[in-house]
Amino acid sequence: MPTTSNPAIRNLLTLDGAVAPAGPSPSGGAVGAAATDRPITLDDIVIKTLAVFGVLTASAFLTVYLELGFLVLPALLAGLGLGIFLALKPRPSAALALLYATAQGVVLGEATQFFDTLYPGVGTRAVIGTGCIFAGMLAAYHTRVVRVGAKATRWAVGTACGLLVLFLADLVASWAFGADLGLRDGGGPAIAVSVVAIAAASYFLLLEFEAADRFLRSGASHRWAWYVAFGLTMTLVWLYLEILRLLSYLRWW
């Protein structure tokens, strides 16, 4: 069964001993620590994910309410740095997961306010759209209507890599040469790019669910639920931003 394309979850699954069943030490030592290091449960994943999204939502709300838009650039850099760090060096840290959610909340709050000012109501529709896709993909995974396959996984990973290259090329062309590749101007190509990105991000959710299911079956420590929540947050933030952009394109177009 293929693993997730999200580097955070994928690297975690390959860590030596990361998914070893939690339990008492064979030598009988560290009884107190072993007693608290219980296996991960579905409740752990749900509670930790809700906690991370609660912080994300609160951060976004406070950014808009207190007019903290000047923090967007440092928050963007902090979120990027934490994302790369946790992807390359996975660790079950509640502090880092919540700090990442706080930084991303600042970015999402300001982005939502910006688009909602131009196109009133687009932010609410983006939230509803993200929630519907999440619920739909969770139902599809639970009922096995859509299965996680190697071919589809390669497509999703390849699409994500291709989109990253396109966005970087567009950024370089804009900054260095003042050229516009038409990837984010609201025209036909921009709409097509967003649709493809939403499809890829939606499939990534299936991969995250599969990874979480593997943690449950492996008996990993409950502390890794924070890392599962972090991986889901990465995917949902991407999905939300793409839906927000697409809705703004359709309203303008």
Rank of each mutant, 00 (worst) to 15 (best):
L216R: 13
V106F: 01
L77S: 10
L42P: 06
T143S: 14
A35N: 14
W253A: 14
L118W: 10
G131N: 10
H142Y: 11
G81L: 06
V72P: 01
L86C: 04
L86G: 01
V122W: 00
T235S: 12
W252T: 07
Q104L: 09
D180K: 07
R217D: 13
F114N: 01
T153H: 04
A78K: 05
Y65K: 14
P26L: 03
L96V: 02
T49N: 09
G54K: 13
Y227W: 07
Y203C: 04
P21C: 07
D116M: 03
G79E: 02
G29C: 04
R125D: 14
L77T: 08
V55P: 02
L232G: 04
T49F: 02
F70D: 12
G188A: 14
P24Q: 07
L96Y: 12
V172T: 14
W252K: 13
W175Y: 09
W253Q: 10
I243F: 02
H222T: 07
A179I: 04
I243Q: 03
L71W: 00
G187K: 05
A140F: 05
T4W: 04
A78Q: 06
L163K: 06
A58F: 13
L77N: 09
G79S: 11
R10F: 10
G32L: 15
V146P: 09
A126M: 03
V52R: 01
A8E: 00
L68C: 06
F177H: 13
Y240R: 03
L138K: 06
D43Q: 12
T102K: 00
A150L: 15
L239V: 08
V228L: 13
A18I: 02
G81M: 06
S221M: 10
F177M: 06
Y141H: 15
F215C: 15
I40L: 15
A95P: 03
D37R: 15
A200T: 05
A87M: 07
L164Q: 06
A229K: 01
